[in-house]
Computed example of a mutant assay.
Amino acid sequence: MISGDGGIGIVHEIHIISGLPAAISIEQLHILDDNFHVVSFSIIGGDHRLSNYRSIMSHQEKNGEPEKTIVTEFFTVDVPIGTTKEDCLSFIYNLIKWNHESLAQVSERMVSTSLG
Rank of each mutant, 00 (worst) to 15 (best):
E101S: 11
G4C: 04
C88D: 07
E67Y: 11
L115N: 12
G116C: 12
S58G: 08
H12M: 00
T83G: 06
S112Y: 13
G19W: 00
E86P: 04
G45E: 05
H59W: 09
R54E: 12
I24Q: 03
E101R: 07
F75N: 10
A22C: 08
L50T: 08
M1L: 11
V38M: 09
K85N: 06
V77C: 14
V71Q: 02
N99V: 13
S114T: 13
N94Y: 03
N35R: 07
I17W: 03
L50D: 05
V39F: 02
D87N: 11
F75Y: 15
K68I: 12
I96Q: 06
S51Y: 10
G7D: 06
I10K: 06
G116P: 08
G7Q: 02
I31T: 12
T72A: 13
K68T: 12
I44A: 09
E73V: 09
I26Y: 01
Y93H: 15
P80L: 09
H30K: 07
A23S: 09
I24G: 03
L29Y: 10
D78P: 01
I24M: 00
G116R: 14
G9I: 04
Q28S: 02
W98T: 15
N35H: 07
S42A: 14
F75H: 15
C88Y: 05
T76V: 13
V106P: 03
S107L: 12
E86D: 14
V106N: 01
L103A: 15
D34S: 06
V71A: 09
A23V: 01
D33W: 01
D34M: 05
I44P: 02
V39D: 03
L29K: 10
E13T: 01
E27R: 04
L103V: 12
N63L: 08
G82R: 01
L20D: 01
N35M: 07
K85M: 06
V38N: 05
I43L: 10
T69C: 08
D78M: 01
N99G: 13
L95Q: 07
F41W: 10
A22H: 03
L32T: 00
G9L: 03
F91C: 01
M57G: 05
L95G: 07
L20T: 07
E61M: 09
M1C: 06
I24N: 00
G45M: 07
T69R: 03
P66K: 10
G46P: 03
D34V: 06
S40E: 14
S3L: 03
M110R: 11
L32D: 08
L115G: 08
N52H: 12
P21N: 00
I31A: 06
N63P: 00
V79S: 04
V71S: 07
E61N: 12
E61Y: 10
I24D: 04
S107F: 11
S51R: 14
C88T: 15
S55N: 13
L95T: 06
G9N: 04
S51V: 15
L115A: 14
F75C: 11
L95V: 04
R109D: 14
S58N: 15
L103Q: 10
E73R: 10
N35E: 13
L95F: 14
L103F: 14
P66N: 09
L115T: 10
H15G: 01
Q28T: 06
V77N: 08
A23C: 00
D34F: 08
N35W: 05
S3R: 07
E108V: 10
G7E: 06
V71Y: 01
I17F: 05
H15L: 05
P66E: 11
G64M: 11
S107Y: 12
V106A: 12
T84Y: 01
